[in-house]
Design a protein around this nucleic acid. Structure first.
Lengths: 228, 228
DNA sequence: CGAATCGTTGATGAGCTTCAAAACTCGTGG
DNA sequence: CCACGAGTTTTGAAGCTCATCAACGATTCG
């Protein structure tokens, strides 16, 4: 990632905001703010007003059905969420978004974002690629939820977290995630995830001390994510 | 849909092809052909060569894990598939695609499609919206697979098929789908889907005669898809 | 007409959820 | 410094949903 860049999107809107390449006019369409830990930023079903960019922190993007919850993905530094306001079918947010830690955010008005997209073709093209990547992940996760047992999905989840959040110097996953949330991300119950976690520990694939999860045998863990 | 248009994307590439608005130069990048019923058009894991547009017919887009299969979606008239070659992470198709009936197709070379996207901003923007819609559906389906019981997922599947393929004059779903495929689309086994189908019949929500599925009580069926 | 495929049904058990109750953690205040 | 209680973690047990296997009837097709 280049200096002054915030995210993986070349020509990303937020980068430009950060780099102040844009006219001051944008200020009327942008709102910076802080979300406290646990604060709900978007409520599923509410009318779409704009998109959010994460400067720093961590936000879970989740969907509910009845009293059950599934975490679709996490948006950390440089990521975007609430962008599904961009669609032709509905005018309400299809997901909820909740800060997992204190998170610094930037909100952009939907109309402004749309017009920007139409004018800034680089941005549009790169957002297109971003969406394609998301779709790729999304469809893979669909398959996993439908076809994989919980233990294997847990392996996928851990590897994904490792890839997205990296490791601390101590070598454990650089994210503070409640077991509840890990379960909701895996798509299973708290207890089941717990049991599978102990299995993985017994098989020496991971280890846990306190809140810290460490991947010991990445290769074997990854082999669980392969077919059959 | 306007006359001369093939799909829901304004400025869609295929429409332009069909309308012959483009220079003949394109012909070297386009290949029209027919896929027989049951013919596999894309094999998961093969290197990406381009994208496909459906003139007419029906193609299932599916993913495997071991010997199990999940149908992600169906691509019928005017739809696009294989577009996930467009991404930054992998150079192989993440999905398989198989014709469910005789299908008339158009293949576009990936490089050409990419350059076109960079030049044709209307196309890029509308593809962006299309991706956003797909993502919306995809994430909804993720939630369904994770949280809904099979019966409810079956209701979703039937309503979705009804929306995408419409009804025959007789009032039944205008698609010939094997129960195998319906099961793979629902994300459950053949037998389970069969049992749930009988339940829905007994509850007078649907009826089946031969291959024809008819939705009797759409409202109740839809209520199964609502939360809790 | 026989073979093969598909539809239908029952029995069984694995995998997972649910409920419930210990055991452990940690902050708070006596 | 310990006791207490609230919250979390861990474990056990029961039950439900769904997959799997197997068998038989129906339908298609050479």
């Amino acid at each position: 990632m280049k200096k002054g860049k915030c995210c993986d999107l070349e020509a990303c809107l937020m980068c430009r905001l950060a780099l102040k390449e844009w006219k001051p006019a944008i200020d009327s369409h942008r709102k910076n703010f802080l979300a406290k830990k646990g604060e709900q930023i978007i409520q599923e079903g509410e009318p779409v007003t704009g998109v959010y960019f994460v400067y720093s922190g961590n936000v879970k993007v989740h969907k509910k059905w009845g009293d059950k919850e599934l975490i679709i993905r996490f948006a950390n530094d440089g990521k975007i969420f609430g962008h599904r306001g961009l669609n032709t079918k509905t005018t309400v947010y299809p997901i909820s978004a909740t800060a997992l830690e204190e998170t610094s955010l930037c909100f952009i008005d939907l109309e402004f974002f749309k017009t920007t997209l139409k004018v800034n073709h680089d941005l549009a093209f790169n957002l297109l690629l971003f969406f394609a990547d998301e779709l790729l992940e999304s469809e893979k996760k669909m398959r996993n939820l439908a076809l994989m047992p919980v233990k294997n999905r847990l392996a996928v989840a851990l590897l994904q977290l490792s890839a997205q959040f990296g490791l601390t110097e101590a070598g454990s996953l650089n994210i503070a995630l409640s077991k509840q949330d890990l379960a909701a991300f895996t798509g299973a119950t708290y207890e089941t995830v717990f049991r599978m976690t102990t299995e993985l520990i017994n098989e020496q694939l991971i280890s846990i001390s306190g809140k810290n999860i460490r991947i010991i045998n990445e290769e074997k863990l990854r082999s669980l994510t392969q077919e059959s």
